[in-house]
């Protein structure tokens, strides 16, 4: 077996981070599917004004992009917290 290009420290937080990643991924998939489903079932809805003078297509489309960015920051914030806590705890034990 071979290891990574840079030597990695053992990451005790991997399992927790992976679970959080899956939850956020499923959440995003639901929101993304909503966009696709509206497009399929009733594309005319995309032309309706919903916020200010912007139609659903613009709000939902921009929303999906901005949501991905915001969720990325939240994920990183929580992961960093988990890593600091767990890796410190486990290293303290070993």
């Amino acid at each position: 077996m071979h290891g990574p290009a840079a030597k990695l420290e053992k990451d005790y937080a991997a399992a927790k981070k992976s679970r959080l990643g899956v939850i956020l991924f499923v959440f995003y998939i639901l929101v993304y599917s909503g966009f696709v489903i509206i497009g399929l079932i009733d594309p005319e809805l995309m032309g309706l004004h919903i916020i200010g003078k912007q139609n659903l297509a613009i709000v939902y489309g921009f929303g999906l992009i901005i949501l991905a960015i915001i969720m990325g920051f939240i994920y990183n914030y929580i992961c960093t917290g988990i890593e600091n806590k767990m890796n410190k705890e486990m290293e303290g034990r070993s």
């Binding site: 990451d11 991997a14 981070k17 992976s18 990643g21 899956v22 956020l24 991924f25 995003y28 993304y32 999906l64 992009i65 991905a68 969720m71 990325g72 994920y75």
Partner: peptide, 14 residues
């Protein structure tokens, strides 16, 4: 862009 969500939450660290 949505494809990057898969990259971040699922693929990047593993």
């Amino acid at each position: 862009l949505a494809g990057w969500v898969v990259a971040l939450f699922i693929v990047a660290e593993p």
